[in-house]
Design a protein around this nucleic acid. Structure first.
Lengths: 219, 219
DNA sequence: ACAAAACAGTTGTATTTACAACAGAAAGAA
DNA sequence: TTCTTTCTGTTGTAAATACAACTGTTTTGT
């Protein structure tokens, strides 16, 4: 478990917690690690979840496919980010989405009940971690709301501009990379890939933006 | 404050907390109440928020208007529900939406820092309330994700069916009321009201559903 | 280096939507 | 009641989208 400390140190969940305490908690919480190859599923729609998960390595896609094979990407999970927490809460319904590895990945599983129940031993950081959990899930909440504002736009162009300008603002610069290829971006914004591609071309011709691969610049 | 006990007793935030303890906490947390008339704003886009809010009476709409006057309704808040918690967390950005009273309403304001910081007096329920806060925000998270699945549908008909069948499932019956009139439902699903109205008519003619006012039945 | 697969852009067509304008029904106010 | 406002459904048209098919490019695996 020790090899994951450099990642965990930087996570929201363990903000303000020292290395030794993290190690102690990993032990106390009986954290489990598991590897996934590119394309494998971490969770499937309909599964019941008891664990809060942290991505220690790689990249995941939280997505959903409907009857007709239309894929909708809810979010990308980057190294160090948490996921699954919304479904791990006691009384939660089952997982509504798939979680798939888009790269070879490693995931750490934390049992929610153990996190929420202060143990008797030296884990005096439990209450801090619970607070961190609250902050983290708050931020995720806001992220979902931002995504809703993109999705509520009517046209492909508006959705693109809403997302890209938000991303520029978030990354604090007008030139930035996005964690999607074209098909993934289309699935994320729920638009047709080819229509989106042509719309991007038009916007480039109009001098609104430029792009190469997954690097965009707003002008 | 005593008059709000019957409402607060049933909230997620105070689940498992007795009446006397709630009263003690209201005092300890220096909770404030405020009334809003129909049409008034509780919060406005861009405001900074330090309080978790509970709607003690009435009904609110969490919404957003863009430059061109297009309104997007994120969610309706019913009596007893919590709101604002995602923006009240320390380090949060400012409010991204408007919160407007759609009926005469009363709101209770709880300072987040006071909730998260266990005080020295008799409020030994603080940790339970923090846990409740986590469960509540988890549920809201799932609600947002469900909304995203509706919004990710491409056509008005699919959005309607996604939302209505979800609502039927949630309420546990095939005949149910929704908290929207037609314009609000259109703003909630981000579609054109008239197109939605005509789509509803077609679906009724096809025998998929029936409706009178805001009561729908799936067949 | 080569073949296969994945990726990105383009175009044409049928479908669907947004928008505007209007009419009747229902709800609310005087 | 009567008048006014809000709400809901309908229709026609211009605009935007989804879908399919295809091309050339890039990436990947062997």
């Amino acid at each position: 478990m020790k090899k994951y400390i450099p990642v965990l140190r930087r996570t929201q969940l363990f903000a303000g917690v020292g290395d030794e305490e993290i190690l102690a908690m990993l032990d106390c919480l009986q954290v489990k690690a598991h590897s996934f190859r590119k394309g494998e599923y971490v969770f499937r729609q309909g599964e019941h979840i008891d664990d809060i998960c942290i991505l220690a390595e790689g990249r995941l896609s939280i997505q959903r496919d409907d009857y007709w094979g239309n894929r909708s990407i809810i979010n990308m999970v980057e190294t160090g980010e948490m996921f699954g927490e919304a479904y791990a809460a006691p009384g939660s319904e089952v997982m509504m989405n798939d979680v798939a590895a888009v790269e070879d990945s490693a995931v750490l599983f934390f049992n929610v009940k153990k996190i929420l129940t202060t143990c008797s031993s030296a884990c005096r950081f439990h209450s801090l971690v619970v607070q961190n959990l609250f902050f983290a899930i708050s931020e995720k909440n806001r992220k979902l709301m931002r995504k809703l504002t993109h999705m509520s736009k009517r046209t492909t162009r508006e959705k693109l501009l809403s997302y890209l300008s938000d991303e520029a603002k978030r990354q604090g610069r007008s030139s930035f990379e996005i964690p999607f290829n074209r098909q993934q971006l289309a699935d994320f914004l729920s638009v047709d890939r080819s229509a989106m591609s042509s719309e991007l071309g038009k916007m480039r011709d109009e001098g609104i933006l430029t792009f190469q691969k997954n690097r965009f610049a707003l002008l």
